[in-house]
């Protein structure tokens, strides 16, 4: 059962369209597996829509004093012309038929969530039981990847300076704080340290905005490659 969900603030920003593509896709994938969040998103969307489109006549009018111009009459944009333009074509847009894509890690293939359908993947890199395929979203310091952990593998104990989202697409893993299953949306900040281990193996969608920082013993030697994993 899914036990870890995005916070209310994240869901709200998601509905507003204000999160980067990486996190938006993460929430969309989670919501596909989580009826509770899906329902909350639907309600929020309805409410935000209502507020957006009643805006003008009601709430704002109580405060606006400098309204000398009617927005519709401004020369920069001719609404009449726009209507004619738009309605001059009778072409309908049919929704794209979404064919699920597959990825293969360790000779095992996985069906990808449709939210990732049009994203570009880099070649898979491997270190021990970890395999990672970077997703090319070009969001500066934010790195998005598919991370596969083969059975018995794990990520050495680490912390991060920014945030780290791990969304379990398949399989399960454990860390100091508990057990995680398919659909769990685990958002950690720099205050957390953890050491995930996957007995049965797992595939995760990960988003992080800084390199991992390994904290224990010999693994500190891994720090130069911390950016490899997430």
């Amino acid at each position: 059962m899914i036990k870890h969900h995005p916070t209310f603030e994240l869901l709200k920003s998601f509905v507003d369209g204000e999160l980067p593509a990486s996190l938006s896709a993460g929430i969309a994938i989670h919501a596909d597996m989580c009826p509770t969040c899906q329902h909350q998103i639907a309600q929020l969307t309805e409410q935000v829509a209502e507020a957006n489109f009643e805006f003008e006549e009601t709430f704002l009018d109580r405060f606006i004093v400098d309204e000398g111009e009617d927005i519709a009459d401004m020369p920069a944009i001719s609404f009449e012309q726009m209507i004619d333009n738009i309605t001059s074509t009778d072409e309908l847009v049919e929704p794209e038929v979404k064919t699920p894509k597959q990825v293969t890690f360790n000779e095992q293939s996985y069906v990808l969530p449709t939210a990732l359908n049009n994203m570009q993947f880099s070649k898979t890199a491997n270190i021990g039981k970890l395999s990672r395929a970077r997703i090319q979203l070009d969001e500066d310091e934010i790195h998005t990847s598919l991370l596969h952990i083969a059975p018995g593998g794990g990520v050495p104990e680490h912390t991060h300076k920014g945030f780290e989202l791990t969304l379990l697409l398949e399989g399960s893993f454990d860390d100091e704080n508990g057990h995680y299953e398919k659909g769990d949306f685990i958002m950690l900040s720099g205050d957390h340290q953890h050491h995930p281990v996957s007995t049965e193996g797992c595939l995760c969608y990960t988003v992080a905005n800084d390199a991992l920082h390994f904290t224990q013993g010999i693994n500190k030697l891994l720090n130069p490659i911390g950016s490899f994993i997430y």
């Binding site: 369209g17 593509a21 938006s24 896709a25 969309a28 929704p95 794209e96 979404k98 449709t114 939210a115 990732l116 359908n117 049009n118 994203m119 570009q120 979203l137 070009d138 969001e139």
Partner: peptide, 13 residues
């Protein structure tokens, strides 16, 4: 980002 990947319909169908 100068990206024309139009991801929105995958994220919010």
């Amino acid at each position: 980002g100068n990206k024309e990947d139009n991801l929105s319909d995958d994220i919010w169908p």
